[in-house]
């Protein structure tokens, strides 16, 4: 563990807590993409299959349980509890256009042609594009609530911090995982446009409204 990875995990934790607070306080899921949350649930489920078979640390296990628990709770809030406030018309991204190519790529490009490794690779590739339905929804509605912007900023920062973690681990431990790094770079790049809007707008107390 290093400071970059710890900050990344805390940023990820903060994003999930911000999202839950937004939903619970406003009792609304307006502006939140249920499809992205379903993709995140798929990512966590695929990645944490070893939750019960391999023990890394208390921290690792607790975070995995928390991430899996909260993402399914979020889906419950979107599609059941606060269903009336879910904006399905604007949450129209065709996720099959993500899952099929990502699934195929995981079969073709992986470290080892073994079931758990391919499923892990699938979760890495899927995570890099899982935010697309959410960003697509914001571009369709033309705006994002400020708290949703904070959620996205924390979520985007988490993988950017992981990139720093991989740079550190390369020089400190000689550790390098090309698949995770490439997917992490793609994932972070997808947020760049949003980061720009966040820093130029939200930091000045304005709301994000597109086209900027």
């Amino acid at each position: 563990m290093n400071i970059f990875r710890l900050c990344g995990d805390m940023s990820h934790l903060a994003a999930i807590i911000i999202l839950l607070l937004k939903m619970w306080k406003t009792r609304s899921v307006a502006g939140i993409s249920g499809k992205s949350q379903i993709l995140f649930a798929t990512v966590f489920t695929a990645r944490y299959l070893d939750l019960f078979t391999s023990f890394i640390s208390i921290y690792n296990t607790c975070m995995k349980v928390f991430f899996i628990g909260t993402v399914y709770f979020t889906i419950y809030l979107i599609y059941m509890k606060f269903k009336a406030t879910y904006d399905s018309n604007h949450d129209s991204f065709r996720v099959e256009f993500l899952i099929v190519p990502v699934g195929g790529l995981a079969f073709l490009v992986n470290h080892e042609f073994a079931p758990l490794e391919i499923i892990w690779t699938f979760s890495i590739y899927l995570e890099s594009v899982a935010i697309l339905p959410q960003l697509f929804m914001i571009s369709k509605t033309g705006e994002a609530e400020t708290i949703t912007s904070h959620y996205l900023f924390a979520l985007g920062s988490y993988r950017a911090l992981y990139l720093c973690n991989w740079i550190y681990r390369y020089y400190a431990e000689g550790f390098f995982d090309l698949i995770a790094v490439v997917a992490g770079v793609v994932q972070t790049i997808l947020y760049c446009d949003f980061f720009y809007l966040y820093i130029t707008k939200v930091m000045k107390g304005k709301k994000i409204s597109l086209p900027a």
Binding site: D9, H12, S54, F176, D177, I179
Partner: peptide, 10 residues
């Protein structure tokens, strides 16, 4: 090889 065999990251 240097891949992420020990999967210690979240």
């Amino acid at each position: 090889d240097n891949n992420n065999n020990n999967k210690d990251e979240l």
